[in-house]
Write a protein that binds this DNA or RNA. Structure first.
Lengths: 246, 246
DNA sequence: TAGTGGTCTAGACCACAGT
DNA sequence: CTGTGGTCTAGACCACTAC
């Protein structure tokens, strides 16, 4: 009844055991060795087979459940979800998203200046009203087609945000490179009509539907490090995600 | 340096200990007893104070980290995130979302019929091509204003989806009531212009921007139980969510 | 009744951050 | 160096499902 799971862990590796197991099970699903609906053996048996304790095995399975690849039912067992779900669990930037989809992103920096924060920006970044913040405006292309207008505000002094660097890599990669660990974000996705300026930049018509996203991102100290307000051309971009009931 | 956490657990309660702890810490954050940026005591001390083991305490903290309320940094400690994030971790239906926001949702069922599945619906629901499926079309109002057109397809025989029931409660609540446990969903959010029919139903202009969402939902056996294609008026609705880096 | 995942304990050692 | 979270073990009992 149960599908065999053939996984071996390397105890000398610095990679956590639960993560090794999770990666290998995910690879088996990708390769079709574990088909949708397949039932895995129970946690105790799996743990024994791999020479792990049950909590470690559970951690591996829980990781894949959170990722939307497996479902568990008490008294029944663990099964592979039918159909593929978006595996992305990361706090990803548009730049990395496009790279992953082989979309060859390029960026034009429209402006990168230091300005006093307006009230709403100050609140979002938890800065005193009127504090100086960095304001970025970029135009992001995918395969040489204009895709999105990205407006961002950051506290000053976080990183050296020169236009050259911003055109070579994404903002998130740049922040990570200077030791900022992005951890949590709160975002809102909506839609509205393009303004004249947006339409011009994105080669759309004024009033054309645009997808919008505003996001505040916090680092591993819980401080707000970035506020973004982006508009996307809906024919070229949409947001995909997995939801998991806890 | 550390903020005190005053929590007591009831060991006779059927509610898991880690969940009792998590709920009480969340309540303290809501009441402002734990301010943004406040550092909690370390896991071992917290566990001792509450008479719990460290793994149980960790599980409580991890729950709140996943919810976007806390951040942890190795070697440093656990802190409350600055700014408020969307707490919602559930696989929520629009109906419940509106209820929670005191928006008084009402529903008009436009059609509820059994039809042969088109190819894309059959694929999404993992049914054989042409299999009979239930097709629903509903118009959802909030405070008597038209808010969204909801199209859904489901395998037949799941539940008795009469218009009367669908107008009294949300589809998800109806499914849960007949024992379907929704577990995982994969969704895509985009935007496009309103068609003439959509514009009429939603009292918008033809070509007005609409927010779109398509979603496939799976139950705790990993089977697809619902495919939905919805359009929303962006002035009245947007999607809000927390993202957590793992 | 048998088998499953859900919860919980009481330890241990390690990796990393800040001093 | 000390203190923190990250990982891991080897058990235990319980709740729920299916037969």
């Amino acid at each position: 009844m149960s599908s065999p799971v053939n996984v071996a862990v390397d105890r000398r590796s610095p990679v956590p055991l639960y993560f090794q197991v999770a990666q290998q099970i995910e690879a088996m699903i990708d390769r079709g060795e574990l088909l949708p609906g397949a039932r895995l053996e129970n946690e105790v048996v799996l743990a024994d087979q791999m020479g792990l304790s049950r909590p470690t095995m559970r951690q591996a399975i829980q990781y894949l459940v959170d990722k939307g690849l497996l479902v568990r039912k008490r008294g029944v067992g663990t099964q592979v979800v039918h159909g593929q779900v978006k595996r992305n669990v990361e706090l990803s930037s548009l730049h990395d998203d496009l790279l992953r989809a082989n979309q060859y992103p390029t960026t034009k920096v429209i402006s990168a200046t230091v300005v006093p924060a307006t009230d709403d920006i100050a609140v979002a970044l938890h800065q005193p009203p009127g504090a100086e913040v960095v304001r970025l405006e970029r135009l992001r292309y995918a395969n040489d087609q204009p895709l999105a207008i990205l407006q961002n505000w950051l506290p000053t002094g976080l990183a050296d945000l020169t236009p050259e660097r911003l055109e070579r890599q994404g903002l998130y990669a740049l922040l990570r490179a200077v030791g900022v660990t992005l951890r949590v974000a709160s975002q809102r996705i909506g839609a509205r009509a393009a303004t004249g300026r947006e339409a011009t930049l994105l080669t759309e018509r004024r009033g054309a539907p645009l997808l919008t996203m505003v996001r505040t991102t916090y680092d591993d100290s819980g401080r707000a490090v970035e506020y973004g307000s982006h508009v996307y051309r809906p024919a070229l971009y949409s947001f995909e995600m997995a939801l998991v009931e806890r």
